[in-house]
Design a protein around this nucleic acid. Structure first.
Length: 474
RNA sequence: GGUCCGGUAGCUCAAUUGGAUAGAGCAUCAGCCUUCUAAGCUGACGGUUCGGGGUUCGAUUCCCUGCCGGAUCACCA
C-alpha cells in the first residue's frame, strides 16, 4: 500500500504537492512492475482550524459567492478566502492592544475557533457550510488530479479518522506500554529508543495528531488484510513523527509495524527562498501545469513538424509534453534531496528532460512506420557482429531489470528517470552516426530495426513508470 | 543545545553502493541538416568532490573532527 498526497481542504494544491503526488504515483507503478499488488490511498485533511479559517472569511466577506457565480475553480475560491482570512487577521492584530492577546482574541480568529467547536458539536449550520465548501474543493481537486494523471483506490477523510486510535491508546495504558500523568494526559516513553516522551492523549482526553495516525494505520491493515507493507509518502519535515509512530505501533505489538516505511522526500525550494503558503510564495499546481503546457505548445508550433496532426491530437501532444516535462523535472532528482525549482529555467525542453526522451521515442516510431511499409521478414534475426555504438546501447538495454530493482529497493523513481535518459542518449548517438535504411546487408538492416523497436518499447515502459506518456510524432 | 539530512564544474543534477582518467544537462565558444524528425549529434571550456585528519592496495562513497545550509525536538496538524 502506498499513501500519498494528503492535502488540506482550505486551499489549492501547489508545487510541493506535485512532487508528492508524482513520487507516490511513480513508486506505486514501480512496485506494480516489480510484481506487487499495490493499493493507492490518500488521507484528506478535511477538518480542523485551517478549513474553519476559510469558512469564517467566506461567511464575513463572501456575499454568497460560489464557484458558479464567480467562475473560479472551487479550490481556488476557498483558497481565496483563506488568504483573505490571513490578511484580515493580521490587520486586526495590528490594531489591537498587545495586552489583549490579539493572537487569540482577534475577532476573525475567535469566529474561526467558535466554528471549530460548533463543528465538533455537530452544529447543523456549521456542518452544512463545511460540507458545501469542502464540496467545492473536491470538485477543484478532481480536475487537478485528473490533469496530473494520479488517482487513488481509496480515500480516507480525517473527519472520519480523527477520533480513531483513542481506544488503542487506552488499551496500551492497561497493558503498561503507555503511562498516565497526574493531570490525566497519556504518554509514551521513548527515551530508551533515543527519543523523548510523547503525548498521546491530552489531559482533557482528546486526541492529538499521532493518535489519529495510530488509528488509521490499524484501520488500513484491517481494510486491506493482505498488504505486506505500507509506504507513507510524506515530506521529510515529518521524519520524527513517523519514527515515533512506527515505534509505538511496534510497542503495541503489531508485527507489521516493521513493514511501515516513510518515503521521506525533500522540499522544493524556490530561488527567492523556500515556499511558504501563508505568505503566498507558493507556485500553484494548476497555474504551473498550464504554463508548462503553453510553453511546450508554443515551442512545438514553432518547430512546425506536426501540421498533419488533428486539433485533438495536437492538444493531446501538448499535454503530454508539458506535463511530462514537469513530472520529469520533479522526478529526476533523488527524492531524499531537497531540490531547487527555478520557474524560468525549469521550463527547459532540451537536454536532460522529458521532451528529449519523448522526441527520441517519436523518431524511432517514425523509423518503424517506414520499416513496416517495406514488408521485411522479421522472423529470422541473426547478427554476426555489432558496431561499438550498438554494443553500448545493448548494454544499457540489458540493465533495465537491475534498474527497476534498484528503484524499488531505494524508493527512487530518479533511478528510472536517469536510466531512460541514458538509454535515449545512447540511442541518439547510434542513430546519428549510423543510417539504417542505407544499409545493404539485410540481416544488419533487420537487426537495427528490431533493436530500435526494443529501445522504443523500453523508453515507453520507463516513462510510464514515471507517469509520463510518449508520443508517436512530435 | 540534542537528533536527522545535505554540501560534487558558474548553475541544476549523476556516479553501478569502496574501484580504473569523477560524468550529463544548462550557460559560453567552434562545428554537423540534398541522406531515417537538428527538441538531435560532435568537439572545446569548466573539478583541491566544503576544510582537516584517519581506515584501505584504492575514498565522492566508510570513521573522527571542524565549517556552512536545512529540517525537527508542541497537550499544532
Amino acid at each position: 500500500m502506498v499513501e500519498y498526497s494528503s492535502p488540506n481542504t482550505n486551499k489549492p494544491l501547489h508545487l510541493g504537492h506535485l512532487r508528492n503526488n508524482f513520487l507516490g504515483w511513480s513508486i506505486s507503478e514501480i512496485f506494480s512492475a516489480s510484481g506487487y499488488n499495490v493499493h493507492k490511498v490518500q488521507i484528506i485533511n478535511d477538518r480542523g482550524i485551517h478549513i474553519c479559517k476559510s469558512m469564517a472569511a467566506w461567511k464575513l466577506f463572501g456575499n454568497g459567492e460560489t464557484p458558479q457565480s464567480s467562475g473560479l475553480k472551487g479550490d481556488h475560491l476557498v483558497g481565496k478566502y483563506y488568504v483573505k482570512f490571513d490578511q484580515v487577521y493580521k490587520e486586526q492584530m495590528a490594531s489591537m492592544d498587545p495586552k489583549a492577546d490579539p493572537e487569540k482574541n482577534a475577532p476573525i480568529m475567535k469566529l474561526a475557533s467558535e466554528m471549530l467547536i460548533q463543528w465538533e458539536a455537530k452544529d447543523p449550520e456549521t456542518i452544512s457550510l463545511w460540507k458545501i465548501m469542502n464540496g467545492w474543493v473536491y470538485e477543484g481537486f478532481d480536475k487537478t488530479y485528473q490533469r496530473m494523471g494520479v488517482d487513488f483506490e481509496k480515500l480516507y477523510y480525517e473527519s472520519n479518522t480523527y477520533l480513531l486510535g483513542k481506544e488503542e491508546v487506552l488499551k496500551g495504558v492497561e497493558s503498561g506500554v503507555f503511562f498516565k500523568k497526574d493531570d490525566g494526559s497519556i504518554w509514551v516513553d521513548l527515551t530508551n529508543d533515543g527519543l523523548d516522551q510523547k503525548v498521546l492523549l491530552r489531559s482533557d482526553g482528546t486526541s492529538v495528531y499521532i493518535t489519529q495516525d495510530i488509528g488509521t494505520a490499524i484501520l488500513r491493515f484491517r481494510d486491506f488484510p493482505k498488504i505486506s507493507r505500507q509506504v507513507y509518502t510524506v515530506g521529510n519535515e515529518q521524519e520524527y513523527h513517523f519514527k515515533v509512530l512506527f515505534l509505538i505501533l511496534a510497542k503495541l505489538g503489531y508485527s507489521w509495524a516493521k513493514e511501515c516505511y516513510h518515503l521521506s522526500y525533500g522540499m522544493v525550494d524556490l530561488p527567492t527562498g523556500k515556499m511558504k503558503s501563508r505568505e503566498g510564495t507558493v507556485v500553484d499546481a494548476d497555474d504551473l501545469m498550464q504554463e508548462m503546457v503553453n510553453d511546450f505548445a508554443e515551442e512545438t508550433k514553432q518547430r512546425g513538424k506536426i501540421e498533419e496532426l488533428s486539433e485533438a491530437e495536437q492538444k493531446e501532444l501538448f499535454e503530454m509534453g508539458g506535463i511530462g516535462a514537469l513530472k520529469y523535472f520533479l522526478l529526476k532528482v533523488d527524492p531524499k534531496k531537497r531540490m531547487l525549482f527555478d520557474p524560468v529555467e525549469s521550463i527547459a525542453l532540451q537536454g536532460h528532460t522529458a521532451p528529449f526522451i519523448q522526441y527520441t521515442h517519436a523518431r524511432i516510431r517514425a523509423l518503424i512506420r517506414k520499416a513496416d511499409t517495406m514488408q521485411l521478414d522479421m522472423g529470422s534475426l541473426s547478427i554476426s557482429s555489432l558496431e561499438p555504438l550498438e554494443r553500448d546501447v545493448l548494454l544499457v538495454i540489458t540493465q533495465y531489470p537491475q534498474k527497476l530493482a534498484e528503484a524499488a529497493r531505494e524508493y527512487a523513481p530518479s533511478v528510472i528517470a536517469n536510466y531512460a535518459y541514458d538509454l535515449a542518449k545512447g540511442y541518439n548517438q547510434f542513430y546519428q552516426s549510423i543510417a539504417i535504411f542505407t544499409e545493404t546487408d539485410a540481416s544488419k538492416l533487420k537487426f537495427r530495426i528490431a533493436f530500435s523497436q526494443v529501445v522504443a518499447d523500453l523508453l515507453k515502459k520507463s516513462m510510464w513508470l514515471l507517469g509520463i506518456s510518449v508520443p508517436e510524432k512530435m
